[in-house]
Structures are given as C-alpha cells and as structure tokens.
C-alpha cells in the first residue's frame, strides 16, 4: 500500500497555501511534516483527509480498498479531540468505533485501545471531567479501536506529558511495523526508526 501525493495545489480564499507538493508514504513508513508555523502542514493533512478540496494535483491510496474513499480508510486526528463531555471515555470510544467501523464494535479492540493509552482507570468517567492530557489520550485511543491503514496525525502530542508521548510513539511504531502508514505533523520527535522527515517551507519575499 502506498499513499501517493502528486503535484498537490491547495488554495484558501485568494491565497495559495500549497504549491506543487509531491511526496509518497510507503507501507510501514511514518512521514513527519516539519516546517515553520503557517507552512501548510495542517492544510496538507486536512487535504489528504478529504476535508479540503484540491485546486490541482492528485491524492491516491494505491493498493488500498478500491470500494472505499480514501478518507474512509484513514484516521484523522485534528487539533480538537471530538469527545462528548457527558459520555464516558468508553462510550465515546465505542461510538467512534461503531461509527467509523461501519456499526461493528470489537469489544477486544476497545479494551486494547483503553490499555494502549493507559485509560482503563478512566473508562467509566465522563470525558468532561478529564484533564487536557487525558482527553488527548482518549481521543488517540480511537486509532486502536478501529483498524484503518492510514493515520493522519496533526500535532497528536499536544498537551501530552513525556510518558504519554512514549505511549503514542509505541502505538505508532507498532502500526508502522504492521505495515501501516502514518502521515504526521509534530514538533516533538516520536523517535521512530522508520521515521522520515519532509520539510515544507515558505519561499522568501525576495524569491
């Protein structure tokens, strides 16, 4: 499986945010987008997730499920956690597992997801009571509860402490080792062996 982005152009309003960007992510590979604020990292990830329309170029998941759209084969973790404060951590997780998994909830996968992000003690607590870091972990648990080949992570480490970052790094490592694909934008290095970096920058005013 291979995520192939060719000559991508993305406009927002009158501004061109991404101009002729090409890259590929192979199965078993994690690609980390680096660059200054406003370089378009979030835009690239949201475009691959299908949340932003392209102005030119193509995005394709080669060797993926031909019956499903690319966004339906990807997990999108954005800046917001998509948790309902009045539902417990487990209920939140079960909802997303059922919704993203087409109605099928694998109980074992839910347990594994809670375990992976050290959420078992919090499972029965409404998400509204959680701290920022705990909420972020509950959001990331979605990755494990429903298996999807492509992970799109936009600043996944926001408000996580060092121990939690290590938990995330371990899960990303396992996903990649199992032939998964990861496209991430992060300031904190996840310290993976198979991690590759892609610099997206801005042209200077003089250029």
């Amino acid at each position: 499986m291979r995520l192939s982005v060719k000559h991508l152009v993305v406009d927002r309003g009158a501004r061109r945010i991404v101009d002729d960007l090409s890259f590929a992510v192979e199965a078993g590979e994690a690609l980390v987008l680096v660059g200054p604020n406003g370089a378009g990292k979030t835009t690239v990830i949201r475009t691959v997730a299908g949340l932003i329309g392209v102005a030119g170029g193509s995005i394709a998941l080669e060797g993926g499920d031909a019956e499903r759209e690319l966004p339906a084969q990807a997990h999108y973790i954005g800046h917001l956690n998509a948790l309902k404060p009045s539902l417990t951590v487990e209920e939140n997780l079960r909802f997303w597992a059922a919704y993203l998994g087409g109605g099928v909830v694998d109980g074992a996968a839910i347990d594994a997801a809670l375990l992976a992000f050290d959420l078992e003690p919090l499972a029965m607590i409404p998400a509204g009571y959680l701290s920022a870091g705990q909420k972020r972990r509950a959001c990331l648990a979605r990755l494990i509860a429903t298996p999807r080949p492509l992970w799109l992570l936009d600043e996944p480490t926001v408000s996580l402490d060092a121990a939690s970052v290590a938990l995330l790094a371990k899960q990303v490592g396992q996903h990649v080792a199992g032939g998964g694909l990861v496209l991430a934008a992060t300031h904190i290095p996840l310290g993976l062996a198979s991690e590759r970096q892609l610099e997206i920058g801005m042209r200077s005013a003089a250029a």
């Binding site: 997730a49 299908g50 949340l51 499903r68 966004p71 339906a72 990807a74 997990h75 999108y76 954005g78 800046h79 917001l80 956690n81 998509a82 948790l83 309902k84 997303w96 919704y99 993203l100 087409g102 979605r142």
Partner: peptide
C-alpha cells in the same frame, strides 16, 4: 456542539 469539539470533521471521514 459537534462543530466546536471537532466531531463534525471526524464524522465527515466516516464511511457514511
């Protein structure tokens, strides 16, 4: 509510 907490974007990436 779904827009404020980011759920709407995840809903958009579902199969539905």
């Amino acid at each position: 509510a779904d827009d404020e907490d980011g759920s709407l974007e995840v809903i958009a990436t579902g199969d539905l």
